[in-house]
Design a protein around this nucleic acid. Structure first.
Lengths: 256, 256
DNA sequence: TTCGATTTGTTCGTATGTATT
DNA sequence: TAATACATACGAACAAATCGA
């Protein structure tokens, strides 16, 4: 609870700069669930006293975590653990847009929920040992009422031991939000491998396209703070009326 | 040339914080081509004196430009205009990897070079007025000797007036490098719209796949510092042995 | 509504460390 | 070795936003 002092002073041969050390400690506290999602951190001045460093050093550490979207700063109010709510997820991790480039949050429909030993691809991506089980969830996502995305999700049984169909069916939040609130698992990083794929019979039926129609196939691995893979997702997207939008480089600055 | 002083002091009702103002001025100098690619900027101390602000303020401005990969800092040496060389391009703007996630720089083969009035999609993406002409370049990219990517590139005649086939055929650099060195046009931002597409006869022939095979189709617009679109590229990727890799969120930190 | 306490944002200045030439 | 340049760290002052008394 950050009650006892935790000075970084005692000349203990730090490999990293002070602010990196502070950043690590804050990250560890975050991982340990010391502050809830949306909760305020102690003020910069208090953290500085606590770690026995200057305010500027704390500011630099917090600044990097803000850049990584782990924390949020609000002038006059404080620094908070970033909310991984619907809007945030939409902004950060969801890249499917309509022809005008607009994002819309999809409606989710559960197709199947099973517990099984995964195929080789899933096991490998999730770094599972032989025979380890996963929950496999198939999900159909509709945008504007029409099916656009089909997801096959695999999550390790070891990470989400008592996961339940009802969790998925009745959740009022994103899937990542579910991981967060029910298991304290925060997704901080995604790797997406995007390819083209001709629709097979099952997928074509679900997405209402012809067999053989070109779909987007996205293989995606989600990682936690410490780099542990916690979800493997195979996603098929009907890109007739939608697209995967990726923006690289400088954000719109327009100082001309 | 940054010879005369350019103080920001005279209480001239600045809307932005000082460091944002400094950032804007540096960006403007960059756009005006005041410092060549790879050239060193004046030291932080000199810039601080020049703008009549503190070193810390200059550092914050430069820091943001470094985060945007416009500048590069080297301890003990100085601050430099980022090199948009092959390696940088590969890292920043090229996302096609092989099955192991490795990037390899593709070999380029010119298929066609024409000057024409573009189709509606190209004209719209490049914000061209009716009747404005573009150069259209078709390019086949090979990775490991095999054709993987087919590009149809459109660039406004107005931006690259005397562009020549030979420029493309004999360049020893990336296409963006050509824009930079020959026309002073620096690409800082990309928008990529990714979809699936069934290969048509021509593309199938070039990429040596069956007609109807699912390819990745990437529509891409490249923008300059000030947001002007300077290139529209339609790209088809054979993703049998390759993929478009996108990484979102925190970079690997691993402070556990 | 006003006021005061708290918190982050900006700016300055200084000192010291480390890398490069 | 000395000079230069960026990196880190500290501290101080004031501004601006927020919130509750």
């Amino acid at each position: 609870m950050l009650t006892t002092s935790d000075s970084l002073l005692p000349g203990a041969m730090l490999a990293d700069p002070l602010y990196v050390e502070v950043k690590k400690r804050i990250t560890r506290s975050l991982m340990a669930g010391e502050w809830r999602e949306g909760a305020p951190l102690p003020s910069e001045a208090r953290l500085a006293r606590h770690y026995a460093v200057s305010v500027g050093t704390v500011r630099k550490a917090i600044g990097e975590l803000v850049a990584e979207k782990v924390l949020v700063r609000q002038p006059g109010r404080g620094t908070f653990v970033a909310n991984r709510n619907r809007d945030y997820m939409l902004d950060a991790f969801f890249h499917i847009v309509d022809a005008q480039g607009q994002k819309e949050f999809p409606a989710s429909e559960l197709v199947s929920f099973r517990r099984l030993v995964p195929d080789a691809a899933t096991a490998s991506r999730l770094r599972l040992s032989r025979g380890a089980q996963v929950f496999q969830i198939e999900n159909l996502l509709r945008i504007g009422g029409r099916p656009v995305i089909f997801d096959r999700i695999g999550v390790p049984h070891s990470v989400f031991p008592d996961l339940d169909v009802e969790d998925f069916r009745h959740r009022d939040q994103t899937i990542f939000g579910l991981y967060q609130t029910r298991y304290g698992v925060t997704v901080t990083r995604l790797e997406e491998w995007i390819r083209g794929a001709n629709a097979d019979a099952k997928t074509a039926g679900l997405l209402r396209v012809r067999r053989g129609e070109a779909l987007l196939r996205i293989e995606r691995v989600a990682y936690t703070y410490d780099g542990t893979p916690v979800e493997y997702r195979e996603r098929y997207v009907n890109t007739r009326e939608h697209a995967y939008l990726n923006v690289l480089g400088m954000k719109k600055t327009s100082h001309s």
